[in-house]
Design a protein around this nucleic acid. Sequence first.
RNA 1: UCCUCAGUAGCUCAACGGUAGAGCAUUCGGCUGUUAACCGAAGGGUUGUAGGUUCGAAUCCUACCUGAGGAGCCA
Length: 454
Amino acid sequence: MSSEPHPLAETGPVPVALSAARKIRISEASRHVGELVELQGWLYNLRKSGKIVFPIIRDGSGMMQCVAVKSNLPEPVFEALKGLTQESSFTVTGTIRAEARATGGFELDVTDAKVIQRVSEDQPYPITPKEHGVDFLMDHRHLWLRSRRQHAAIRVRHEVIAGIREYFDSHGFTLVDTPIFTPAACEGTTTLFEVDYFGDEKVYLTQSGQLYNEANAMAFGKVYCFGPTFRAEKSKTRRHLTEFWMVEPEMAYADLDEVKRVAEELLVYLTARVLENRAEELKILERDTSKLSSVRAPFPRLSYDEAVKLLQTKGSEIEWGGDFGNTDETLLTEDYDRPVIVDRYPAHIKAFYFQPDEQRPELALGVDLIAPEGYGEIIGGGQRIHDLALLEARLAEHRLPREAFEWYLDLRRFGTVPHGGFGMGVERFVAWMCGLEHVRETIPYPRMLYRTRP
RNA sequence: UCCUCAGUAGCUCAACGGUAGAGCAUUCGGCUGUUAACCGAAGGGUUGUAGGUUCGAAUCCUACCUGAGGAGCCA
């Protein structure tokens, strides 16, 4: 580290506008062609050719190539632009011009510029325009988010989340949040993160808002909760995070068919919305969108029985009673261009609260929606037990502590009704939309088995 | 937790028992239309850690550490 400041370093206070030029974001460029505007951003890349330099500025909304010609600019302005290093922050003023040669279709003819902070050559920006490995990039996740592909994936995530909210809000659902600290396991199966709660009581980070959702559905009719969920399982695959986001709708007076209908409608809506509003991001991600435009109702529907038979003809070693592995899920969807709905699973591989099938009580009225292209289960849900005696029996069978579930049993004592819902994993859905290999790129700061930083 | 693979310059990789090298990044110089620009030059290394084999180890062996892919489990 040199103690001498670089001659081009800017150490003064952050400036206000350079001129009377209107400050705009790059995404608005098409509405300001021919106007003098100011852009505020960071240097993405710089090419120079003697007396002309081409800084590419990114401002979070897009990128634009600027053209700075030496003979048209004051010497210090030209030299400052010429000496910019990657990710230096600066503002430029100039006139927007339509330019077919430039990516994005517009260029800025620079008339003035101001460097806010020039990134030091002693410690240059670590992520270069060349290739990097996953480990290095994950260690620099806080900077990696500035890159084109990561930026695009997070914007698709944003669109999906906005779509989820819009879908439920416009279909009569109320957002009722469920707690993150919970006193006991919801399902009694997965491993939980234990938290020291003021020394005396043990609490856990939630793995699902579902039990609380059922109470909320009896209060509001149709509800959803949407928040982070935690699983302490030591899963090490491209489909797992220890902290992930899940949206869980729950509906009073709903049976399994209604749950399937809503799940299907939600996926169709979200997919169409992403295709409509995020075409540019999908292009950056090089997503084959023909794989998404076929996602329309109705989705193929299989019973668990049929799915097992189908898998056996495809060479899987699955036997009736077993759960699907990842290769099974991929085999199940390989002949379809949209998600597959599989329902009525053996009760013993599902959680205690699933309503049994009337004709065949050994089956649970659970349903999974399995995404194509190997993205696996993105929705899981079903119809819940509404009968008090049956639920009490199931709690005992699963050796769950009765006292912790007394409030949950109350829902069956005071005006119980058939009800159901499902949970959708946001990151898996976004990974599918984006065509990403790994869910870790669909969340800003992934938490995984061996990664909690940055 | 188990199986497989990988750790060499800031980054991506090469060298596979005999003097550690290239591209990118950074610095300096050149170029008025570049598109991961190009051309010339410079600086940059305890080869993940600790042992062992050998005249000689980045290279072979052992253990450990770190990471990646997969299995199981799940959304």
